[in-house]
Design a protein around this nucleic acid. Structure first.
Lengths: 198, 198
DNA sequence: GTCTATATTGTGATAGAC
DNA sequence: GTCTATCACAATATAGAC
């Protein structure tokens, strides 16, 4: 496997070139935005030639899709680990808001990758469009499943779950705007009272 | 007043050059995004020379501030007109969600200008930063005032208002993602039940 | 698979004539 | 106040050698 094992990740693990590119792009796209991050900066930071990047990713848009998939994986992996040991559905829902606040703080209040990318590219490409909708739907179903476990599979469950999802996204974007965790704490409390009132 | 009365707006009103630039930039920034809209495209569409634009606006960022102010004015003017005749505070709150849905449909689900601009420019300039926070705070206070009128100036009013604001922004960004009004309808219903439960 | 060198187009902004 | 012409630089992407 020539070209493999050439780079080291932050945890000093041996990784592939492709993985190294994704990690570099992931950091820059999320910190500076997709449109404000040029291919030039990515290859500078990653320490490779331009044609090498284009060998692994045919276009910037393809790299963007890989970025979105990676953010999605990082989020759900981190969440799963954070919820480990918590089995009660209501607690899992509420702790998801806690983790979101923690996650945003650790990411310098960068907001939601998917919302950001569609804000940057209103007439989004087909690949990016599919990714965003796919992953937003995954988040929605996550709340729906937990809500059904929490309040029973009654008729209103879908609407309650969607309301929780609205508070989740609202809290996320307002934390991005105000650069503080307060909005997500307000959202968390609203969710508790919503579930307790049922 | 040389240079005045040179252009016509969509309503066939005589307008100044500065106004014509703002209207053109407003349309393009909101439809295509700020970073994907070049100065060149703006002057092409507006039908004037590049140096003329820079005579009226010293930089693209200054034009951005004017764009944000205009979007803010359009929103609140439209809202005021929509709420005209509705005096009951709860109705005014709920109708604000209706108007939001209507407004997003008319703007091709472009979302919230302020959230979009900070998504495009994570390390935003000082002028833009000030505008966004100013106008988001204006929206928040709008809901706070109405909530106090609706449920009385009790201790929980601020938190209820912030929850409504969370549902408002959550609904807005999800409408932008899904390109349909359903999220704001769900948000509206959640607001009704929130207020009825008090 | 990675490199250097280059192609092409666009960017925000300015000088100076009128 | 508006124009033409031009600046310096960055954008995404590719050809072809090794």
């Amino acid at each position: 496997m020539p070209g493999y094992y050439l780079f080291y990740s932050m945890e000093t693990q041996v990784i592939t070139v492709r993985e190294h590119i994704i990690q570099t792009a992931c950091k820059l796209f999320h910190e500076q935005g997709y449109n404000l991050t040029g291919i030039n900066q990515i290859i500078d930071e990653a320490g490779l030639a331009k044609a090498s990047l284009y060998y692994h990713f045919p276009s910037k848009e393809d790299l963007c899709v890989a970025y979105l998939q990676r953010r999605n994986k990082l989020w759900f992996d981190g969440l799963e680990s954070y919820l480990n040991g918590t089995s009660e559905p209501r607690h899992r829902i509420v702790k998801t808001f806690d983790f979101r606040a923690l996650h945003l703080e650790n990411n310098n209040f960068g907001g939601c990758s998917y919302i950001k990318i569609i804000s940057e590219m209103p007439q989004r490409g087909e690949k990016i469009n599919r990714q965003v909708l796919l992953q937003k739907e995954k988040q929605r179903l996550f709340f729906l499943e937990l809500t059904r476990l929490a309040i029973g599979n009654r008729k209103t469950a879908a609407r309650v779950a969607d309301t929780i999802f609205l508070l989740f996204d609202g809290g996320t974007v307002q934390c991005q705007v105000y650069r503080e965790v307060t909005p997500l704490q307000v959202a968390r409390r609203a969710v508790v009272e919503l579930l307790d009132g049922l």
